[in-house]
Amino acid sequence: MRENLVFQKDRYQESTGLARFRNLTHWICDTTLNHKVPPTFYVSPKDKVRMVGQGVVLCCKADGRPGPEKYLWVKDGKEIKGGANGELHLGNLQKSNSGHYSCRVETSAEIATSKIARLSVQTHAQDTCNRKPDEDFIDLPEGCHTEETGKHSARVNIGRCKKGQCITSTMSNDVDCYDAWPTFCCSTDLTKPLMVNCTHFSYTISQTISCKCRECSTITQISGEVYGKQNGTKIPFKSGQIYMKGQLVGETTENGLFSLTISGDDKEVVLLLKNDAENRFMNTLKTVKIMEDGNTPIDVVVPLKSKPISFNSNLGHTMPLANGNQTAFTHVSFPRESFITQDGKPFS
């Protein structure tokens, strides 16, 4: 007999084995069926920025069982030629090469597609950033204004550089998958101070006036007002402390205003506000979503401490739970003599 036998099973790789003579009535064959594993990308193409005339390499790699034999590349939803080995080389780039790229593999286990990367090809210049910042208007606290345009304004354009990857004219890489230089971003180049005048005080904010491509630095200014409300009236969180990650990072003014500078790659931070000068407010946590490399304006409303309620613990008490003048959403009951002293006797 001595023939190769083919073994097939759903969701398993096909296997072959050579039959061996055992006796006049039996032949035996040993083989192993390996379970198919869908391909998974462990390298996906990265977002790239290039100037007209430069080159670029986009890369992807996948593994599975069976492993992929070739890669197909897709630009803006349409299959393109090249890159069968997982490396797509594009030279003499033009603006028409800009788009969204991904690669795809197909095995007997499954079809898989990598993450999508954006290739941006821009006009050759000193760098690929727009030096003019986008408009970014913020509302100043009540009673405050600027005179930037020669008239009082409670709304001011502080400017914002359009956050995004960029390169300078000295950067070029058309041979490797990974750019050797650090990540560069469009970020603030020049700023000017803006004086904000309020009823009894003044403070300064920064206005972005130009942008530049530079090594990414995620520095954000968080500024705003902290207050409570009582009968519709704002109560400032006077000279209170602001903590982040257990560290004191700032304080509010007498009018409840504050400004913090945050560095790092966090997309959001948690602020703890406590210890106001008049001890009128409860400790409050506030989660703030970060606007990278710019100003993040916020208002924080903190709850006022409620007045203590006196009652006779020997008689018990039922207390409504509600916010301000709202209808109680539940009640808390203290049975009679439920408060005890350290020796276990009823408190009175």
Rank of each mutant, 00 (worst) to 15 (best):
K61T: 07
A62Y: 09
A62F: 09
A62E: 03
A62L: 03
D63F: 08
G64D: 01
G64V: 03
G67P: 13
G67A: 15
P68I: 08
P68F: 08
P68V: 06
K70M: 05
K70N: 13
K70A: 07
Y71L: 00
Y71H: 02
Y71C: 01
Y71R: 01
L72A: 13
W73H: 10
W73K: 12
K75R: 15
G77P: 05
G77R: 04
K78Y: 02
K81R: 12
G82C: 11
G82F: 09
G83M: 00
A84T: 13
N85C: 01
N85K: 05
N85G: 12
G86Q: 06
G86E: 04
L88P: 02
H89F: 14
H89T: 08
L90P: 00
G91Q: 09
N92H: 04
N92P: 00
L93I: 07
L93M: 12
Q94I: 11
Q94E: 15
K95T: 15
K95W: 02
K95R: 15
K95F: 08
S96M: 03
S96K: 14
N97C: 06
N97F: 12
N97H: 15
S98A: 11
G99S: 13
G99C: 09
G99L: 10
H100T: 14
H100A: 15
H100C: 06
S102D: 10
S102Y: 13
C103R: 12
C103W: 05
C103H: 08
R104Y: 02
V105A: 11
T107G: 05
T107R: 04
S108D: 13
A109C: 07
I111H: 03
A112S: 15
T113P: 00
T113G: 02
I116V: 15
A117E: 08
L119G: 10
V121I: 09
T123I: 04
Q126S: 09
N130R: 10
D134N: 14
D134H: 02
D134K: 07
E135L: 11
E135G: 10
F137C: 00
F137I: 12
F137A: 00
F137Y: 11
I138L: 14
D139V: 14
D139S: 15
L140D: 05
L140N: 03
P141I: 10
E142G: 04
G143K: 06
T146L: 04
E147A: 04
T149I: 04
T149F: 05
G150V: 14
G150R: 10
K151N: 10
A154M: 06
A154H: 09
R155A: 12
V156K: 05
V156H: 04
V156Q: 01
V156E: 06
V156P: 01
N157A: 11
N157K: 09
I158H: 01
R160A: 10
R160F: 05
K162H: 10
G164I: 05
Q165W: 02
C166G: 06
C166L: 06
T168F: 02
T168V: 09
T168M: 01
